[in-house]
Design a protein around this nucleic acid. Structure first.
Lengths: 429, 429
DNA sequence: ATGTGGGCAAACAGCCGACAA
DNA sequence: TTGTCGGCTGTTTGCCCACAT
């Protein structure tokens, strides 16, 4: 280690506040965290999927059911803290949730948080490392456009033009690089200091690095390890079965007592977000008409850390796991994808993940509870508008009691506020 | 990496059988694993302590009670597999337990497994690494007696005497070392290959290495990282609260349904063994007279991987956590230690961990249920012998029904076989 | 008996432009 | 525009012994 490159000792992970901009950049453009204090919907099924992905073990059929635990919990989000694994820099978030009692769910609440997709930094670049970048033989080749956009301008009167860059990673550790413009043809390179960074972060060809120049003229350094297939760590603390049970029991206990519980959300390990803004859920479930055959778009992250839309078609509507999670909206849509290269994409998605291509404006007074003419196949979902105005008016209407005739219907779920019950019933039956 | 030192790609951790001898050497001389098929007692409290130690988080008072979960479960041990962390080589064991129904507990069972302390290898040595050992400047200095005992003899006619040693670590990876006898004065050294090992295993001064020469003339390599205080990894998978709940709920579910469950036992992270042979438990709880003031010995591991006894005195007898775990034998003894240097030793131990200095032979026919004269302070424990003969006869007697008068007593616990109830009742009340 | 350090040679890290893709 | 390579140099690694504890 060169003495000038020893990172500063960071403070305790717990007490420090991670740089939000860098966290979101590492998490990716599609990841958003609901606002503190807002209402969210928590899906134990999605949480289960994350644990399954992290432990590389499917859910065992031995795991008991928690019939008292509904497939979704409406919660108050009391706290969100961003974290990063000390070893791998993997980002994750800790959330404190409190299930709301039916009474609390009736309290006035204006859902202005639709899950604004995280503000990605504007002045940044992300590069996937080549063999040369990670070799000990040389430094890091900076793409020219990237260097000119995010690094401070070099003094080109120097021979060669050179400057020192100082950046900080998620833990606040400081890293110094020599930035030089040389070679024939000329190019931007990071030389001294780079290999120390590669070694310390254990970067290999295929991993990605992020350089962000923020508003305070600070350089932020992020890394994204490639999805190495063998990331499975057979956590020696607790069996995966016990983890699954623990997640369910913790949520069930919190739901029964309306007490707070804590979860970790690991955006790059989890197949889907399992804590979503209540408004986003309501909008998707109550104001979107879907049916088999419907075409839709859905956002995905590219390898260059940008987003693109893939087209797909709904091929079926059914419960993912009727025995364990009856009446669950989680991944209730079976879908097919247009592009054959999209073969590895999820065959099931949730309503709130897609953008239907055709939508109809809807007003509460004209709610059709059940469609007279059945859809070609599958279960009928009722339709609705998806503009914010009708959404708000609808929520007011729902909160004030809705249609008394509808309310007389019975709903089997638990943890869903009464004014929702007839809607859900009609939706999923 | 020198090409000759690239370790072989090991097979999948799951499918391979770890070397038992090496595992036990790394686990330490005090660690024993109950025999497969035998009956054991599982203590959720002890399991909880391990999770707390691993997550560096005390048990939150928010965690719900599981009143249906007794403080100890008598189980059949169906499976034990030895594992080692891929990253750190930390050893741990996976056990599959099945709580026994009261009916099953009555089945004939001869407890011949008293938890034979693990057979430590005879031909081995363990050295704590010095600064020179881990420096890149040189190799590893082998203590002379150790080298002569465990390494194959050198051909001293060579100048200098030299040979190549090939060993395997817990994962089956192969490591090669050049072993030379040179210097002035002459000494045994490991040179080429040593630094690769140090780097790969991330050894630093203070860590220990184990060299074992087994009966098949194979060299086995073990490591023991020093207790680095900051080993806390804020596991990003599941909150520590959920882990605690999961452990309890998994055990409670298994106890209620008499179904199997899986636990991990991490001998170097856990303060105490929490799965112990049933015979050991019965012997300690039913055949040992303890009282406040009793002096005892207890085994501890030394830094050189051997054992020594510390002397102590029982200063109190009480439930560790009467609210959460009423009637639990776990760490029911408050103790003081003779040596002031033993200040960091546990202030509470369990009956089966100690060796009382004074014991009395006892026979079933003379069981005093409750001592007429109370002990100086604290709760009265009934006394008994601790020799194997009386133990076996006592178990037979217990299994056959014991004293009918005693059986009429009521016992509040669950998961304890009926023939035990009066004993436990008398013991702990 | 064994930990540390100086001397030394070999290996590696790492900076450079030359190519080519 | 940028990935990889050969050439070159300075630093590190790592083997040897002397010396001290």
């Amino acid at each position: 280690l060169t003495s000038s490159n020893i990172p500063n000792q960071s403070q305790e992970e717990e007490t420090r506040c991670l740089n939000s901009e860098l966290w979101h950049a590492c998490a990716g453009p599609l990841v958003s965290l609901p606002a503190v204090g807002s209402r969210v919907v928590y899906f134990p099924q999605g949480h289960s999927e994350q644990v399954a992905a992290s432990t590389n073990k499917e859910i065992d059929s031995q795991i008991p059911n928690y019939p008292s635990l509904p497939p979704q919990l409406i919660c108050q989000l009391h706290n969100v803290t961003m974290h990063a694994d000390v070893e791998t820099d993997e980002v994750y978030a800790q959330m404190t949730l409190q299930p709301l009692s039916p009474q609390e769910q009736k309290d006035p609440y204006l859902p202005n948080d639709l899950g604004t997709s995280s503000k990605q930094p504007t002045n940044y670049f992300c590069k996937t490392l080549t063999a040369s970048d990670t070799s000990t033989h040389g430094g890091f080749s900076v793409p020219r456009r990237a260097a000119e956009k995010v690094f401070p301008p070099l003094d080109y009167s120097l021979q060669p033009p050179v400057q020192e860059l100082v950046g900080r990673d998620l833990h606040g550790n400081e890293w110094k690089f020599r930035h030089v413009f040389r070679g024939q043809p000329k190019r931007h390179l990071l030389t001294t200091g780079w290999s120390t960074f590669v070694t310390a972060k254990r970067l290999v060809a295929g991993d990605s690095v992020l350089f962000i120049w923020n508003e305070n003229n600070q350089l932020l350094l992020g890394i994204r390890h490639a999805n190495r297939p063998q990331t499975f760590m057979p956590l020696s603390v607790l069996s995966s079965d016990s983890m699954h049970i623990g997640l369910l029991a913790a949520a069930a206990h919190a739901a029964a007592t309306n007490s707070r519980f804590t979860i970790f959300y690991n955006p790059r390990a989890s197949p889907s977000e399992f804590v979503i803004p209540l408004a986003k859920y309501v909008k998707a479930v109550y104001h979107t008409r879907v049916s088999v055959g419907l075409r839709f778009r859905m956002l995905f992250e590219t390898e260059e850390s940008s987003v693109r839309r893939y087209m797909g078609t709904i091929t079926g509507i059914s419960y993912l796991d009727p025995a364990r999670w009856p009446n669950s909206h989680w991944r209730a849509l079976k879908v097919g994808w247009d592009e054959s290269t999209a073969g590895e994409k999820q065959p099931r998605v949730s309503l709130w993940e897609i953008e239907p291509l055709t939508t109809f404006p809807m007003y509460p007074s004209s709610f059709p509870l059940r469609l007279k003419r059945p859809w070609p196949t599958g279960l009928p979902f009722f339709h609705g508008g998806n503009d914010d105005i009708s959404l708000n008016s609808c929520l007011m209407w729902l909160r004030d009691g809705g249609n008394p005739a509808i309310q007389s219907l019975n709903f089997q779920g638990v943890g869903v506020t009464p004014w929702m019950q007839p809607r859900l019933d009609a939706l999923m039956l």
